[in-house]
Amino acid sequence: MKHETVLKEEAITYLNIKPDGIYVDGTLGGAGHSKAILSHLKDGFLYAFDQDDFAISFAKEVLKDLDRYMIIKSNFRYLKQRLNDLGIEKIDGLLLDLGLSSFQIDDASRGFTYLKDTTLDMRMDQHQPLTAEMIVNTYDEKALARIFFVYGEEKNGNRIARKIVENRPLKTTMDLVKICDQVNYKDKGHSAKRVFQALRIAVNDELTVLEDVLKDAVSLLKPDGRLVVITFHSLEDRMVKHFFKDITTIEIPKNLPIQNIDTSPYEIVTKKPIYPSEAEY
């Protein structure tokens, strides 16, 4: 199995790794970023988080010849707590790669793909009880429509939700794709893309988790520490941009004679988003 690491060189560059620093890879995945971080450490240490059993097994094989790291099986929303439990209160850098790993998509049994007929699962942590199948078969029409609109920006969310309720029970990904095909038949892209994104976000509570970890991340950073976030869709992108703007901006009331204005302790290093190079496409 081959795993492609996204924005590896760019992520390492902006982490500005110190050889003796303490770093965290909040999304271990295929271990491409972790391996790159470790290659820059001498006396430093890396803590790598993931909640996916397969990802952890795969990463252990990738990193088997390296040391100075620890893999922690946990959702990164508990990152600060788990680090504090280990006596780590401050870190030099944190990387969050918010995309799905290629092996999660390629493994049809995980239910992330709308291109194969498989179970409606979509769990990152396969030990949690909530699945996509439970959501589509138990949530009411209004709740489903809200998920599709808010998490998938699906303009036909109401119609899709209504058809889901009318055609219950749904058992497989193709059951859901057929409904999306009936509603989004005029779409240029895949009819179910936005609905699958929305369900995946809902199953894994991804946006709440992201909000939590961003708040914890900045409180963990040492002076000159770096937070690098790789986003893959507009919801994540907006949330991260707004968060960075909020923590780096001091609101000053207009037309008030204020002296000794405080400045934010945080600074945005990249003035514009960094995109993958042509070599990655």
Results as ranks from 00 to 15, higher is better:
Met1Gln: 09
Thr5Tyr: 11
Lys8Trp: 01
Glu9Asn: 15
Leu15Phe: 08
Ile17Tyr: 13
Gly21Phe: 02
Thr27Ile: 08
Ala31Arg: 12
Gly32Glu: 09
Ser34Cys: 11
Lys35Pro: 04
Lys35Gln: 15
Ala36Gly: 02
Ala36Glu: 00
Gly44Thr: 05
Gly44Glu: 05
Tyr47Trp: 06
Ala48Ser: 15
Ala48His: 01
Asp53Trp: 07
Ala55Glu: 07
Ala55Asp: 09
Ser57Pro: 00
Lys60Leu: 10
Leu66Met: 12
Asp67Glu: 14
Ile71Pro: 02
Arg77Trp: 05
Tyr78Val: 05
Gln81Val: 13
Asn84Asp: 05
Asn84Ser: 07
Ile88His: 06
Glu89Leu: 11
Lys90Gln: 10
Arg110Leu: 12
Asp121Arg: 02
Asp121Ser: 09
Met122Asn: 04
Met124Val: 09
Asp125Tyr: 09
Pro129Tyr: 07
Leu130Ser: 10
Asp140Met: 03
Lys142Asn: 01
Ala145Asn: 02
Phe148Asp: 03
Tyr151Trp: 07
Gly152Asn: 06
Asn158Thr: 12
Arg162Thr: 03
Arg162Asp: 04
Lys163Val: 02
Ile164Met: 14
Asn167Lys: 15
Arg168Gly: 11
Leu170Met: 01
Thr172Pro: 02
Leu176Gly: 11
Ile179Met: 10
Val183Ser: 09
Gly189His: 10
His190Leu: 08
Val195Asp: 00
Ala198Cys: 11
Leu199Ala: 04
Arg200Asn: 04
Ile201Gly: 03
Ala202Asn: 06
Asn204Ile: 10
Leu207Tyr: 15
Leu207Phe: 15
Ala217Lys: 00
Ala217Ile: 08
Val218Lys: 01
Leu220Met: 15
Lys222Arg: 15
Arg226Asp: 02
Arg226Gly: 07
Val229Tyr: 07
Val229Ile: 15
Ser234Arg: 05
Arg238Lys: 12
Met239Asn: 06
Val240Pro: 07
Lys241Cys: 14
His242Cys: 09
His242Asn: 15
His242Gly: 13
Phe244Pro: 00
Lys245Arg: 13
Lys245Val: 07
Thr248Ser: 11
Ile250Ala: 04
Glu251Arg: 13
Ile252Ser: 05
Pro253Asn: 11
Asn255Met: 10
Asn255Ser: 14
Pro257His: 08
Ile258Gln: 01
Thr263Asn: 08
Pro265Ile: 03
Thr270Trp: 06
Pro273Met: 07
Pro276Val: 07
Ser277Gln: 12
Ser277Thr: 15
Tyr281Met: 13
